[in-house]
Amino acid sequence: MFSKQAITIAQQIDQLKTRGLAISNEAIATAYLSNISYYRLGEYWYVMQSDKKNHIFKPNSNFTDVVALYNFDAKLRILLFEVIEKIEISLRTKLIYHLSHEIDPWWFQNFTLFTDSMALVKTLAKLEEELSRTKDVTIKNHKKKHREDLRFPPAWKSLEQTSFGALSKLYGNLKPTVKSKDTIAKELGAVNHTYLPSWLQSIAQIRNFCAHHSRLWNRNLPGAPKLLSKPPNAWVLDVPKQHEFQKLYTHMCLMKYMLNVIQPNNDFTQQLDNLFSTYPNVDPHALGMKPNWQQEPLWK
């Protein structure tokens, strides 16, 4: 039975010092622990422990290094969130545009276009929930003006209210016979519809980590995106192996690949490189970064 009791911040600091973590400025440590929980920071000092059962730190472990890792990770999430935002807006735009022209503005609630009906039911239920609680004037005015129309508002209104995860599920669930599925894949550099769904699932998952302020540094990511054997656009020469897919680098490569199509003159490489330069004590290998990754055709 779990029996640990809550301890004060002063006790937390004493416990860390007893276990071998150097804390030169207790006032600063108190300030951090007052605003960032012991448990959350523990995700960053865990790798500094030589005895993880008894929580004993390796020699020269320092609280300032824990803070640096935490701050690096926070800034990495902000950077990736901005990149993912551009991908999300592009995907949303292409789904709305191509399918509304190929089918009609209510394609997303047409069950004949989708492979998994139950999955679509869940997606539409979530969309209905989002539309019912939105404060968006466009949606409110549409419902007021078209009370007799029991359908969702058209795609260009409805899908602006839904999440990246829902968009990726809608795309992945489309039948291969829907022409727009391949069109969208080609426009995002994925050649055809067999590759893009796994890319979107990967990015949606990372977006959720960013949105919920969850650790990305040194995290093993589930899922294995399908990589193109001969990408039509610049890619990496040192292609990640299957066992490396759990590290963030592979997923960031996919983000960069799509971003290069959406916004060719982006500064993702420079921002990421600057982040590593700002925090030189952060081990790039914890993210699966390749040596000289900046020199890869993809990142140049």
Rank of each mutant, 00 (worst) to 15 (best):
L41Y: 03
K53E: 12
Q49F: 11
Q11S: 07
K53P: 00
W45Q: 06
G20D: 03
I23V: 14
E26W: 06
I36P: 01
A27R: 15
P59C: 12
V47S: 12
I36T: 14
I56N: 00
K53H: 12
Y44H: 03
Y39E: 08
S24A: 15
Q15R: 10
Q15I: 01
D14N: 03
N35P: 01
K17W: 06
L21S: 03
H55T: 02
L16T: 02
Y32L: 08
I13N: 00
L21M: 13
Q15K: 08
P59W: 09
N35S: 12
Q11Y: 02
I36D: 04
I28S: 13
E26M: 06
Y46D: 14
Q12R: 06
A29V: 09
H55E: 04
L21F: 04
A22K: 15
K52V: 04
G20A: 08
E26C: 10
G20S: 07
I13R: 01
V47N: 10
N60M: 11
N60A: 14
K53A: 13
Y38M: 06
W45K: 08
Y39V: 11
V47G: 02
G20T: 08
G20V: 08
F57G: 05
T30F: 12
G20H: 05
I28Y: 09
A31M: 12
Q11M: 02
Y39P: 00
F57K: 08
Q49C: 13
S50F: 13
E26K: 13
Y39K: 08
S61F: 02
L41Q: 04
F57R: 10
N60W: 07
G20Y: 05
N60Y: 13
K17F: 03
L41H: 07
K17I: 14
W45R: 10
I56L: 08
R40P: 01
Y46W: 15
Y32D: 05
N54W: 03
